[in-house]
């Protein structure tokens, strides 16, 4: 009540000005509301900053959802802090609260992005958050990038551990003279795709050694040498790409804007 009182008083004194102020505040609130909130999962590897920067550029608000594993052991800076803390009880307490924090982060987001630079061995960090992630993916748009796409499959030749198993297939090492497959590649888009809408010359930046070969949900293909691999998947509200849209210049930003639009559409329906 205390905070309302001055505005009320001003409203009575100068009704026109107060009306304008209210209108402006309303517009600001409206803008904030239309900016979709996208949670980026930080599982202790990978370039989170680039993905966040690119999504913000495309009109989204980003929040970082740190997995419990990323909070405790895999972050180099946090590891130092953890060893200093000898109190086991305190660590245990931190563990449960960090898991809850992660779930809460996904809860308040309109969409989820699983970025990826790293190795499939990160799957062990992902398997711990499997339940809240799968629950959120059922309701909200999801976008996997590079390793984030590979983690949607159950296993990989790269390392042990099981991924999310949403798609059928295996992640295999590319058969190509030079690995990693780094650089810009043209891709061929199959059928109509929401993600690639409005992209005339689909050339994107790739950086990987493993890839998926043949999947029913393929929406785009590319080649490394003579090795054809899947570079985009779409299944309902779940999207994934093998390349790095956050590093693919104007094309990449267009693709991410398309995803942000999808998120806006989905959150309106909800």
């Amino acid at each position: 009540m205390g905070t309302n009182a001055p505005t009320q008083a001003r409203k009575r004194a100068k009704p026109q000005r107060a009306g304008q102020m209210l209108k402006r505040a309303f517009m600001r609130a409206q803008r904030m509301r239309t900016k979709p909130k996208i949670a980026i999962i930080d599982y202790g590897a990978g370039n989170i900053a680039s993905v966040a920067n690119a999504l913000e550029k495309c009109g989204a608000k980003t929040i970082i959802a740190k997995t419990p594993a990323a909070m405790e052991t895999s972050g180099i800076q946090t590891r130092k802090a953890a060893t200093q803390n000898s109190d086991v009880q305190a660590q245990k307490g931190a563990k449960t609260s960090s898991a809850a924090k992660f779930a809460a982060c996904l809860q308040k987001a309109d969409a989820i992005v699983l970025p990826g630079v790293g190795s499939f061995s990160c799957a062990k960090n992902i398997s711990k958050i499997r339940a809240p992630l799968l629950a959120a993916m059922e309701k909200k748009p999801f976008f996997g990038i590079c390793l984030g796409m590979q983690l949607l499959f159950s296993n990989s030749e790269e390392a042990k551990g099981s991924g999310l198993g949403i798609f059928e297939g295996k992640v295999r090492r590319l058969k190509c003279k030079k690995l990693p497959n780094v650089g810009w590649r043209s891709i061929s888009i199959k059928g109509k795709s929401l993600l690639f809408a409005g992209i005339k010359k689909p050339v994107f930046y790739f950086c990987h050694s493993y890839a998926i070969r043949g999947s029913k949900r393929t929406s785009a293909l590319s080649c490394a040498g003579s090795d054809k691999f899947v570079c985009a998947l779409e299944k309902g509200n779940t999207f994934a790409v093998q390349f790095h849209p956050e590093k693919s210049g104007p094309n990449g930003l267009k693709l991410l804007s398309n995803f942000v639009k999808i998120v806006q559409g989905a959150s309106k329906c909800r």
Binding site: A45, V117, G118, S119, P180, C207, H208, S209
Partner: peptide
């Protein structure tokens, strides 16, 4: 390479 991948 082990921590961030060879590509890095």
């Amino acid at each position: 390479a082990e921590k961030f991948g060879s590509q890095a």
